[in-house]
Amino acid sequence: MSDDIGDGTGFGDGPDVEEELLEEELRQAASLLDPVPPALLQSAVDAFALRDLETRVAELTFDSLVDAIPVRGAAAAPRMLTFSAGETVLDVELTDEGLIGQVLPPAPARIDILTGPYPAATAEADDMGRFTSTVTPSGPFALRLHTTDETVMTEWLRA
């Protein structure tokens, strides 16, 4: 059961060739035993519908997971995120109870909470730009902000 490696049939038998064959065999094993799950493949294909050319993207400029110094004993510290698109800034805090945020400069706005192609929830920002939701995103999520002037969407993140 091992005659397909290292016997040099038709390939020469230099060590590089052997490695090439082993790598290729491993590649086939991966395709067989650990392929991209079909549902994930489909989800990525379907994601093309998420494209929205009218919407500006707010980039992640702060993520407490990366940018904050971990505090010992503060295991339940909320995840703090800041997104920026030009002068529009969106501060978001994810807790076990839900999501708290603020739009700057402060202005009323509608905020869609997305976990896939369709909004999972909607929140309204008050005059101070503050908003809350009892939805705690888990997995991929993004926020889409509708102000009177424009629509801004945050980069997709994993909550």
Binding site: A47, L50, W156, L157
Partner: peptide, 9 residues
């Protein structure tokens, strides 16, 4: 999923 969603942006 997150990677592909972000790639659309």
């Amino acid at each position: 999923q997150t990677v592909w969603f972000r790639f659309t942006q």
